[in-house]
Design a protein around this nucleic acid. Structure first.
Lengths: 346, 346
DNA sequence: GGTCCGATTTATAACGTTTTAAATGAACCG
DNA sequence: CGGTTCATTTAAAACGTTATAAATCGGACC
């Protein structure tokens, strides 16, 4: 009386929701192995089998179990992005992540994010990820010339892409913005407007792109033979008020700079505010050319000239490069230097 | 000659790097089961065994394999956060994520992020996550009164926390900012400064917190018996330039509002720029009280009065609440309404 | 007619963990 | 001393997948 009908035996469809390889196997009559092979388009499977399996899989909405795949293959299907604490303003990190996510959209990869609480000390986080295989690849920004994170990853052969270059002899994948070109062009534009004493606001010196910016600035300045000034008390990572106060103080002293190349929108706004304390007006007594990474600045202050860095695109490129690197392609073409959009018509 | 010494048999230490339960078992002489039990502090294990196992585990740097745990238990140890496309500016999303990450810091949970490419259409993404068990919990923002995402999750009993409230009768966990209190206070401050025709810039009407803001605004306006204005062509999600242009146009017409309650920093900046087109100066012809979520606005434009919303804290609270919800605590105390910091001394 | 081959398919084991049920052994009791 | 209990430990199975090796089969070949 308590017997269940024999015919129900082996029917796993109603069991517990999620369809598995087993479900498809029961439905098609093939073995689990065959189904697995068919789905991964392995060569030894006959065309009709492959087709049938794919049909059924699609019909019941089969999706491979990530945990099982990961356990078996060792691949995590996870990309980890390290978020710097300085990225809190103007969506730097968010834009990058949107781009990344777009590149990962039709892949099995998920994006996990690890914020750095302590600046630069993410070496522990990285070695943790590498040692325990928590991800298949890593993304991070703000590299230093001999960045210990890059060294660690290179030594371990762990796939990664940086936003920013280093000076290691071993080449590694990066996607960077040509900050030399940016600074050079920005400074030239200031000079073209008749400014005779440009100043550049740089990121902290330890970062590679600080050197690039400085180099571009100096090249333009020397070519034109004009005076210049480089503030050593402030950088782009400073709190807004510190930049503002510095500018305010500087504006009250002699030989005030009359042109500013700003590596970020916030520093440009801070500069405007600081200068206005002494009645100096943008476009009259001085000009600004700034790097633009959002829509904010140019809309709020159209008088600030801007040169665009597309961080969403950067993120997308980083994603593509990382996927290629994980796939094992050789590192040729994995070093991308994005050029500023310079409108020569202007 | 090719024999390996018997003594090496079973020694898994050198095998392939990562230590596993097996490694600890071999090292201590206990069975794998016992080790697993000891590490998870199961009750039936003797104190000394537990201690010994923990020692060895710490010594060799054992870390449980996430994939294996997930496969066996069905728990993913993953929290998923949905990122809206509107969060690209001023680090809204980043702040929230930093807070979240802080709350998750000493837990086994990882944070995976899914950007929404299409506004509001993330219902598919959510049902995908729910159906395939891709995460143990979900975090998202910008709720609507009868948000379909909330409905779906409630129906499936899937753990989540929203930033923002709904009007469903079934209570669900949320962490929200008291936008009524904010708008009420902001408007009162404008009136206290002698402004007689305040305007409020609201988020899109479909969002719950739009109603809250409106309600706070109207309450203050009615109490004081002053005129008011609510623009219907713009909202906080509009591109900066659209708000700026609107303000510019409005400033050229009669009965221009003389006080602005802004729900975001960007709209405040846009307002200032637009008003200045007609020579109207902040602090002279009009005042602004804005919600502040970053350090930008108050440093750039100290004349804008601000009321702070701490999004990092919000994220941290959301993390705590979600963990509690996942742990199965009943939903009492899972509805957090954060109060604006109102400095009564001022 | 047996052997071998290529083309498919399949059974089995394994990844590292947790769970269920069973085993061990000491202590206790009648 | 046999039986019962309790505290601890253990063996075995399972989660869903992939990799390795083996099986099946029709036909080609000598």
């Amino acid at each position: 009386m308590t017997d269940t009908p024999k015919s129900a035996t082996g029917d796993t469809r109603l069991k517990s929701g999620k369809p598995t390889l087993r479900t498809i196997a029961d439905l098609t009559g093939f073995a689990v192995t065959t189904v697995s092979r068919a789905l991964s388009n392995a060569p030894q499977i006959s065309t009709e089998t492959r087709k049938r399996v794919h049909e059924v899989a699609a019909e019941i909405g089969y999706l491979p179990d990530r945990a099982a795949q990961r356990l078996k293959t060792g691949r995590t299907n996870v990309i980890c992005v390290l978020l710097d604490p300085h990225e809190e303003i103007l969506g730097y990190g968010i834009s990058l992540m949107h781009g990344l996510a777009r590149a990962l959209q039709d892949t099995p990869y998920h994006l996990i994010v690890m914020p750095n609480f302590i600046d630069g000390a993410n070496i522990d986080a990285i070695s943790h990820i590498v040692r325990n295989g928590m991800a298949d690849g890593l993304i991070f920004s703000r590299t230093e010339p001999f960045d210990p994170r890059v060294r660690l990853l290179l030594e371990n052969g762990f796939p990664f892409v940086t936003h920013g270059r280093t000076e290691f002899t071993t080449p590694h994948p990066y996607v960077d913005y040509d900050n030399f070109a940016f600074a050079y062009e920005a400074t030239r534009r200031l000079i073209a407007r008749g400014r005779r004493k440009p100043m550049i606001i740089l990121p902290p010196k330890r970062m590679t792109f600080s050197q690039h910016l400085l180099h571009g600035f100096m090249t333009a300045v020397r070519e034109a033979g004009v005076a210049y000034e480089i503030p050593d008390e402030i950088d782009l990572d400073c709190p807004v008020e510190q930049i503002r106060d510095y500018m305010s103080r500087r504006a009250g002293e002699p030989d005030t700079p009359d042109g500013f190349a700003c590596g970020g929108e916030v520093s440009a706004l801070a500069t405007i505010t600081g200068m206005s304390d002494h009645g100096l007006t943008l476009g009259v007594e001085y000009d600004i050319v700034a790097k633009r990474t959002s829509k904010l600045l140019s809309q709020i202050q159209p008088k600030v000239e801007t040169i665009y860095e597309d961080l969403t695109d950067t993120g997308a490129r980083m994603g593509q490069v990382l996927l290629a690197r994980i796939a094992g392609d050789d590192t040729t073409g994995m070093q991308v230097l994005l050029q500023p959009q310079i409108d020569f018509a202007a």
